[in-house]
């Protein structure tokens, strides 16, 4: 490392978080190149481990949907995956302790009312204590208590809490009177590369920050009307016409979609070079939108960790090869 410190080509990657909500994060990654940004994106999509239902044992299913159908739907329910860090991949783990790899979940609902009943993610019965922060549970989980065989509790949460009032649970299927469903599921740790149900994100995307420079001299040759037309030529509010200064200003550069409409307009007006738009090749505007399995910042951090381990591994492998070559060279 000490050698790299002095390297003038050494870059200093930097992350500045612009906006963060419960399920999205927007940050700017600077001081690196496309390959790293894309590697981060790819890892977020495909290699950040989460937990999802993987095995389903059907004990009773008299609903109108067939077993595989329901199993597929169960698999796609995002589960809160803080515990994923403490768990092992089932294909890596050689031990006998199932609790390290598996999280048992049950689904037991019978419809007794005359009305069609919805079976939702709230009806999933998680073994153990679901109140704890890091426990595996469906997103926006408010247990209905119906799974315990309590016929009176029809979908309403057992504890009567109204948390996440606007967050609807995920519908799994609907039951008619006397239809019953009883399934034993096993949730496991996995990565998005194996199945999309383990993807922690809905979207993970970056774009280059545009660098917009207005050729003020050329702009000055435009009439007022033309200036407004120019501002309007871009489908997104990239430019703004300032009434006071009577000048065109750059408004929201990040909203530019690289559609080239304003450039085309300038070209058609016979004013090429009116504006110069260039993608900054070392600045990336990232948007990561979580499915709810993990907080968005965790996803990014986990992705960096995965990236780090990968590099570590490559490095150690390289070292081995290098030492082998050295010894071979001695001989």
């Amino acid at each position: 490392m000490s050698k790299a410190d002095g390297d003038p080509r050494q870059r200093r990657p930097n992350i500045v978080v612009q906006e963060m909500t419960e399920d999205t994060i927007k940050f700017v990654l600077t001081g690196t190149d496309t390959s790293i940004a894309n590697a981060l994106r790819r890892v977020i999509i495909a290699e950040v481990p989460t937990i999802a239902i993987d095995l389903v044992e059907v004990i009773e299913n008299s609903s109108c949907l067939c077993d595989e159908f329901i199993a597929h739907r169960l698999g796609l329910i995002p589960l809160v995956s803080h515990k994923a860090a403490d768990m092992e991949f089932p294909y890596d783990y050689a031990g006998d302790d199932e609790t390290v790899t598996d999280v048992p979940i049950e689904l037991r609902v019978k419809c007794v009312s005359d009305q069609t009943e919805d079976v939702t993610s709230n009806d999933l019965l998680i073994n153990g204590d679901y109140t704890q922060y890091d426990t595996v549970k469906p997103v926006h989980y408010r247990p209905s208590g119906r799974a315990f065989g309590d016929a009176t509790a029809s979908g309403a949460p057992a504890d009567g809490s109204q948390a996440d009032g606007d967050k609807h649970p995920i519908l799994i299927l609907k039951l008619r009177k006397n239809q019953e469903i009883n399934m034993r599921c096993v949730a496991r740790k996995g990565v998005g590369r194996d199945h999309a149900k383990w993807q922690p994100v809905a979207t993970a995307v970056y774009r280059f920050e545009p660098e917009i420079t207005i050729n003020e001299d050329l702009m000055a040759t435009l009439t007022e009307e033309e200036k407004i037309k120019f501002v309007e030529s871009s489908p997104t509010p990239v430019f703004r016409y300032n009434d006071q200064t009577r000048k065109v200003e750059v408004n929201m550069p990040e909203s530019y979609t690289y559609d080239g409409e304003c450039l085309k307009w300038a070209e058609d007006m016979g004013k090429p070079g009116l504006v110069d738009i260039r993608a900054k090749e070392d600045t990336f505007l990232f948007t990561v939108e979580s499915t709810g399995a993990l907080p968005p910042e965790t996803i990014v951090l986990n992705a960096l960790k995965v990236l780090d381990t990968k590099l570590e591994m490559t490095k150690s492998e390289l070292d081995i090869v290098k030492s082998e070559m050295d010894t071979a060279g001695v001989e």
């Binding site: 496309t34 390959s35 894309n38 909203s255 690289y258 559609d259």
Partner: peptide, 16 residues
């Protein structure tokens, strides 16, 4: 905010 012709700028998923 889309282009009128239905085209989008896209990034290659492999190289970025």
């Amino acid at each position: 905010g889309f282009s009128y012709n239905g085209k989008d700028l896209m990034h290659c998923g492999i190289t970025g």
